[in-house]
Amino acid sequence: MVSIDVWNASVDFPIFDAKSRSLKKLALGKVGGKIGSEGRVPIIEALHDISLSLKDGDRVGLVGHNGAGKSTLLRLLAGIYEPTRGHSRIVGKVAPVFDLGVGMDPEISGYENIMIRGLFLGMTRKQMESRVDDIAEFTELGDYLQMPLRTYSTGMRVRLALGVVTSINPEILLLDEGIGAVDAAFMAKARDRLKDLVARSGLLVFANHSDEFLAEFCDSAIWMDEGHVKMHGDLREVLTAYKGYDPFERMHQHEETPVLSGNGGE
C-alpha cells in the first residue's frame, strides 16, 4: 500500500544570519530567556496548513508560479522536510528527482555515478550492475561513461540522470521541473521511458509548466499559491482555473489523441 497523508502541515524555514547562528548570541542575548528558543530568528513560511491525501494510483500534476511552494511541497512529500507544525505520513519507497545534478560527483566516471545514484534511490549494487548496460544503451553515451562527469555537457548529464531514474522501480515518484535540457530526439525517447516509469510507479507527483507533459502523465492536479493549496482536483479544471483558459482545447488542435477524453465536469 502506497500512500502519502499530510495533516495541516506547515513548513517554516528559520533564516539564521551569521550572528544569530552563533551560540554567543543565544547564551548571552536574553538573560532568563529560554536558550535555544527561535523567537528572534526570522522565519519564512514556505508552506501553510497543507492537508492532502494521496493514494496508490494517483497521478498528480503540480502547478503554480515561481516561489509558490511547489519544490518545498515535493520535499515535504518526499519526507525530506518533516512538517514544523502538523503531521505527515509517507508509506512507500520514495524516488525523488529534484535536481538532476545532486548526488553526481563531477570527478568520477559516468558508470560510477550511475551506481551511486542508484544506491541513493534505494537499489542494491547487484540490481544496478544488471541495469548499467541498459542505461548505457538508453543514454547513448557509449565510451563517455568511462570519462569523469565534469567532461559532460548539461544535456549529457540530464541523459545520465534520466537513464538512472527511469531504470528503477519506485513506489512513489516525485518529479520536479527541469527535465528539459535534452534535445528533442532524446526527449521523444525519454518520454516513452518516463511513461513506462510512471506506469510502474504507484504514485506520481509531477511539477511542470508544460501542459502537454501534465496532460500526458497526470489526471489530477494541485495548484499551489503562496504556500497554500489553492485548488486540488481534476487536472483539466485546475489547469483551466490556473491559466484562465482550457489548455486542452488548444492542444487538441495539434494532437489527434485526446489524452483525457471523457472527462466530465464536476
Binding site: 492532502l52 481534476d234 466530465g264
Partner: peptide, 19 residues
Amino acid sequence: MQATRTFDHPEAPPAVKSR
C-alpha cells in the same frame, strides 16, 4: 470516473509522531 473522485482531507492524524 473523475467526477466521482474526492480530494478530501485525510481523516485522523497519524499515531507516529515526528519527535
